[in-house]
């Protein structure tokens, strides 16, 4: 299996027993039947997908949802490109927790991270406490996207990850990334340009601009 062109780190946040693990489990298991079973029972999941001909590797990091571990979140979500914040639609408490997570993520990582707000357990529509309108409005207000899923019925899970990956892709190929990468290229090529010993031939499109 060849390397993925891009790889994204996605972190799963949310209160305990809202079904974080179940969601990712559903996603991984439905598609990977038994190939990686040995290595994946760990709170850590890997999956490669193809989107529009692009090879994308997802590494999904599960986090502990217990309140006492809340403060340790930064260690987990540092450096991640996407976050899936899960709440239970039948549990108002988990919704406030999810909002807290989003607030924290925004504060820590700014706009570099793609946020998803997930209302899980959509199969329990009867005992829903958080209305769809409310959560969707909130998600829109913070630049996140809201999804309703049911890990139990396998509803919306595939779409969630697919959409998240697409958004991360567009984000990574959009303005910040290109400038970032050319910056990186610039620092290294700068070093070479400083004493132009090396005949420049790399990255003729973007690298060259800084030499002129």
């Amino acid at each position: 299996m060849s390397e993925a062109e891009k790889s994204f780190k996605v972190v799963l946040l949310g209160e305990g027993c809202v079904g974080k693990t179940s969601i990712v489990l559903r996603y991984i298991q439905n598609t990977f039947v038994d190939k990686h079973v040995m290595t994946q029972h760990a709170g850590f999941f890997q999956k490669n997908i193809n989107i529009a001909g692009k090879r994308v590797g997802l590494t999904i990091w599960d986090t502990a949802g217990q309140e006492r571990f809340h403060a340790l979140g930064p260690i987990y979500y540092r450096g991640s490109q996407g976050a899936i914040v899960v709440y239970d639609i039948t549990d108002a408490d988990s919704y406030t927790k999810a909002k807290n997570w989003i607030k924290e993520l925004k504060a820590m990582l700014g706009n570099d991270i793609v946020l998803c707000l997930i209302g899980n357990k959509c199969d329990l529509e009867k005992s829903r406490v958080i209305t769809l309108e409310e959560s969707e409005a909130y998600a829109a207000s913070v630049g996140a996207k809201h999804y309703g899923t049911s890990a139990k019925l396998n509803k919306g899970v595939e779409e969630l990850f697919l959409d998240l990956t697409k958004r991360m892709l567009t984000k990574s190929t959009a303005i910040p990334t290109i400038s970032g990468s050319s910056n990186q290229g610039a620092t290294t090529s700068n070093r070479q340009d400083r004493i132009p010993i090396v005949p420049e031939n790399e990255n003729s499109q973007e690298g060259k601009t800084c030499c002129k």
Binding site: C17, S22, A42, G43, A64, G65, F69
Partner: peptide
Amino acid sequence: NNNGKSSSTPSTPKIIGADLLLP
């Protein structure tokens, strides 16, 4: 049952989430 796990993990070894792993 409350996590919906039972339906998704019928035969494979139980998958451990971080909720369990970290403690």
